[in-house]
């Protein structure tokens, strides 16, 4: 008797939809077994989908160099969780931003830990995204049919750098203020539209409250939405096409 038949026999022993009391179904949902054995599985075939995905074979040539993409996703998750936690205390005004960061660090329980995690996971994420790209390059894994996935990957790298650039201003300290002043001058060198670009990014002639509001909105709303969109595309494509074959 194989796994599938065993499962079938087990299912036949269980009471049918009609015989069930609502209480039992409720218990199965609350105990989460409903998703794999109970009412939700009967309707959605979750167990079958889960088995199919968990048993999916990973090719033998996959070595430790293939871990950087997954680690980037792990660090992204750390950033999302710690970022939301910091958002509970951060105040995006030039009068209060710095004070709120000091408050988080010194007064909020484990605030120093959450802020430290957000700071270091950001740096490590850049390293991991870069190593992931280098691995894909040297393995020639960007070639067709995975060429479009390389394009989404480079866009994801730029979005990650965008997170770094906008997040750097938020504590509103000396180095972040002046680094942003210098950094936003760079697009000004583009011919014809340069001056317009700098004004657009800063929301005025200088780095000011408008810049802080703008960078805050981009860092916590716009970039997370855009990066989620590209992450889904990136994962959908690798899932559909599979990991690149051996060299």
């Amino acid at each position: 008797m194989n796994e599938h038949e065993k499962g079938k026999a087990l299912k036949e022993q269980q009471p049918s939809f009609e015989q069930r009391s609502g209480l039992r179904e409720l218990f199965e949902l609350f105990s989460l077994t409903g998703f794999v054995y109970g009412p939700l599985d009967e309707r959605l075939n979750i167990k079958e989908a889960l088995e199919k995905n968990l048993k999916k074979a990973v090719p033998h040539h996959v070595n430790w160099l293939f871990c950087f993409g997954g680690l980037s996703l792990f660090l992204f998750t750390v950033q999302a969780v710690t970022g939301i936690m910091l958002l509970m205390y951060y105040r995006p005004t030039i009068a209060e931003a710095y004070k709120s960061v000091v408050y988080v660090t010194n007064n909020v329980p484990f605030g120093w830990l959450v802020r430290g995690l957000h700071h270091w996971a950001a740096n490590l994420m850049i390293v991991m995204v870069f190593l992931h790209m280098a691995r894909v390059f040297f393995y020639g894994a960007y070639k067709p049919p995975r060429d479009f996935n390389w394009v989404t990957g480079v866009i994801l790298l730029m979005l990650t750098l965008g997170f770094g650039f906008t997040g750097y201003l938020l504590p509103w300290n000396q180095i972040s203020y002046w680094a942003t002043t210098v950094g936003t001058e760079a697009p000004g060198a583009v011919p014809v539209v340069g001056g317009l670009l700098t004004t657009l990014i800063r929301g005025g002639a200088e780095v000011s409250q408008t810049t802080l509001t703008r960078f805050f909105a981009v860092h916590v709303v716009i970039l997370p939405l855009v990066i989620s969109f590209f992450l889904m595309g990136h994962f959908f494509m690798i899932r559909k096409q599979g990991i690149s074959g051996p060299l």
Binding site: N123, I175, S176, W178, A179
Partner: peptide
């Protein structure tokens, strides 16, 4: 620990302004 720099002062330009290492 994550560094705690002095608060922003638009009237005092620091001597060496450098971006984060990845820029």
């Amino acid at each position: 620990p994550a560094p705690m720099e002095p608060p922003a002062d638009p009237f005092v330009t620091p001597e060496h302004i450098k971006p984060e290492w990845y820029f």
